[in-house]
Computed example of a mutant assay.
Amino acid sequence: MGDDRQLKGLDGDLLPLFERLAIEAGHVIMRHYEQGFSVEHKADDSPVTAADRDAEAVILDGLRAQGLALPCVAEESVSRGVIPACGDAFLLIDPLDGTREFVNRRPDFTVNIALVRGGAPVLGVIYAPARNLLFRGGADGAFEVEVKGRDIAGRKRIQARARRADEPPVILASLSHRTPETDAYIARFPGARVTSIGSSLKFCLIARGEADLYPRFGPTMQWDTAAGDAILRAAGGMTRDVAGNPLVYGPREDSGFLNPSFVAEGAGFTA
């Protein structure tokens, strides 16, 4: 497992594994969603529920059962101080992205699993269990996947669109984290249509050609974005920091796994 050449050979096997574990985690989340749950708050005042923790356990236990010897940076483990040393390749896991949407019973919460290699997200799976909808991205492209129960019911390839320079863009804004900086960015595009949606599904809407831009000028963590970024890149888009460079993943000495501000964009888009 430590040999990067061996790991690259496993990529085709990892995506089906990520799909299966995301779907299993989604079933756990929906059980809490239907049966009820209490809400706690972490040190940063962000909400957390038993669904977050139980979904993460399903994913981590499933990875261990497969003998996958990769560092796993998972949100709830990190909040408890469990932060593995990361080499060139590691996993970023958000077992319940969009907890605020989950708590408020909006259907936009997701399960996110991504493989990072060399600072770039190269494989990603996002599952929205309340929508029975899964997205995946890797070397073979990006796909939208219909889920029925625990089974894959169908797949279709998706592609980010290239917007004409004279066409107002469709811009996605965070439903729970809108900032004045975001509003200022949107104001640069007269006539833009703005849609608000929660969680990492914003990346997926750009990846399937329904939107052009997702600006985020506020704190996010790498596990929030890696899976969606992998899917978007596989669909022909890109996520860039405010200097225009592709977003880089991995621990930083000064900020850990905190992302800088960024803009996710469709194919060939120059923001």
Rank of each mutant, 00 (worst) to 15 (best):
T182D: 15
R155E: 15
I171S: 04
F143P: 00
P169H: 04
T182P: 00
R161T: 11
F143D: 14
P180S: 10
P169Y: 06
V145H: 02
T179N: 08
I171C: 05
R157E: 09
K156V: 05
R150V: 02
E181G: 09
V170Y: 07
R155N: 04
A165Q: 15
H177L: 10
T182V: 14
R163T: 07
A160Y: 03
A162N: 08
E146H: 13
V147R: 01
A165L: 15
A165S: 14
R178A: 15
P169L: 08
H177Y: 11
V170S: 09
R150Q: 10
I171N: 06
G154Q: 02
A162H: 14
T179E: 08
K156Y: 00
E167I: 04
I152T: 08
K148A: 10
L172Y: 07
D151V: 04
A162T: 14
S174V: 06
L175V: 06
K148E: 10
R161I: 09
A153G: 04
A165N: 13
L172M: 11
A153E: 00
G149Y: 05
G149F: 00
R161Y: 06
F143T: 10
T182Q: 14
R157A: 15
D166G: 09
L172G: 02
A139E: 11
A142W: 01
F143K: 12
I158L: 01
S174Y: 05
K156G: 00
G141P: 03
L172H: 07
P169V: 04
A153L: 01
P180A: 10
P180N: 08
V145L: 09
A162D: 03
D140I: 06
H177C: 07
E144G: 04
H177S: 13
K148N: 05
D151R: 12
D166M: 03
T182G: 15
E146N: 12
D166K: 05
K148W: 00
S176D: 11
E167L: 06
R163M: 05
A160M: 02
R157H: 03
R164C: 10
L175C: 07
I171E: 05
A173L: 14
A173D: 09
S174D: 13
I171G: 05
I152A: 02
L175K: 15
P180V: 04
D140W: 01
I171T: 10
P168M: 07
P180W: 11
S174M: 07
R161W: 10
L175F: 13
R155C: 08
V145S: 06
T182K: 09
P168T: 02
P169R: 02
P180C: 11
D140C: 10
A139R: 09
A173S: 13
R178L: 15
L172S: 02
E146A: 15
G149I: 01
G141A: 02
P168Q: 03
E146W: 06
A173K: 06
R150A: 12
R164L: 14
E181M: 09
